[in-house]
């Protein structure tokens, strides 16, 4: 067995996990405020292509990342306005955003097809640390954004559970009436965090584009990562720290098919390996469910329900 391939796989799994961490953190912030945004996949795609076009035009990946995040926030603002101001059905609104985002991204991506980007985000080098066998490439061979993702999850956890705004955010998702009685605007908080969430998802989509795929492959660019991120939030019980763990785990299942192919382990059909990440997510989702478990899992109690002061 070629040890190098497995080390590379671990490094790649952590890299894929970066997109998942950003996307899942974005979904988590949104859902903690009580808004369910199923449009993550659409936001990922739109921000991915926007970042590609921006980086291609400007020659700067950092500019690409910024544009991608801003577009992510703009896309999320559509969902925020529909679900908070117009009190639309959030599930259908999220799906509409996926359809709209997919069409928009493919439309914008037309000129980018077949193009590759020359300026990609490069892994950092920690000198001798990166040369340590096994641990070196896995722990010290990632790019700066991957470390940022992990740091962000830690900060998000502190923010959510140890700060005043974090408490307000959690309260808005659990009991908006109380937040309202405190004189805070539920609508404003929800719109704000839906947009912040969108920016985080956008950052994940841009990173996926600029560090991972380095080419536009229409919907296959994200290939359902947005949906996996949504399941990951459930898996993590709406807690940022557990997202890191879950994202790495799903990162492994996403990388496994390529590794097994490289190892020429062919007794498992490749189609089955392709299914693996989705199957693993599904099994995890079912394993975590128990009768009446929505609250014990940690789901915000007002998730998906619009807040209306005078209709209670």
């Amino acid at each position: 067995m070629n040890q190098n391939i497995w080390i590379l796989m671990s490094a790649d799994a952590i890299a894929i996990a970066t997109t998942l961490i950003f996307a899942a953190l974005g979904a988590l912030f949104t859902e903690r405020s009580g808004v369910l945004n199923l449009g993550i996949e659409g936001i990922l795609l739109t921000s991915a292509i926007s970042s590609f076009l921006a980086a291609d035009a400007s020659g700067s990946v950092w500019f690409g990342l910024i544009v991608g995040s801003v577009i992510g926030a703009v896309m999320a603002s559509i969902h925020a306005v529909l679900s908070v101001v117009f009190r639309a059905n959030q599930i259908v609104a999220g799906l509409a955003l996926v359809i709209f985002g997919t069409g928009l991204a493919n439309f914008l991506g037309k000129p980018a097809e077949g193009k590759t980007i020359t300026t990609v985000i490069k892994p950092l080098s920690f000198g001798p640390l990166s040369d340590i066998p096994v641990i070196g490439p896995i722990v010290f061979g990632q790019d700066i954004i991957t470390y940022l993702a992990i740091a962000l999850a830690i900060v998000a956890s502190r923010y959510l559970f140890n700060t005043r705004p974090g408490l307000e955010l959690r309260a808005t998702g659990d009991d908006p009436a109380t937040v309202d009685a405190q004189g805070l605007s539920v609508a404003r908080i929800r719109i704000r965090y839906t947009m912040v969430g969108g920016a985080l998802v956008g950052l994940g989509g841009s990173w996926l584009m600029l560090a991972q795929s380095a080419g536009w492959h229409q919907a296959a660019t994200t290939n359902g990562l947005g949906w996996i991120a949504l399941a990951l939030v459930v898996f993590a019980g709406w807690r940022p720290m557990r997202i890191i763990f879950g994202a790495v785990l799903f990162g492994f299942t996403l990388q496994l098919p390529f590794t097994l192919q490289a190892e020429q382990i062919t007794f498992i059909p490749s189609a089955f390996l392709e299914m693996l990440p989705y199957l693993a997510t599904l099994i995890a989702l079912i394993a975590l469910s128990r009768p009446g478990s929505r609250n014990s899992l940690g789901a915000p109690r007002a998730l998906g329900t619009p807040f209306v002061r005078d209709e209670r």
């Binding site: 529909l82 101001v85 117009f86 609104a93 509409a96 996926v98 709209f100 069409g103 037309k110």
Partner: peptide
């Protein structure tokens, strides 16, 4: 061709807003 898909999404988004 993707303008068609985009319009589908846009029509749905506007219909949802119009519901209000």
């Amino acid at each position: 061709i993707h303008i068609g898909v985009m319009l589908q999404g846009a029509i749905l988004l506007f219909a949802l807003g119009g519901e209000a």
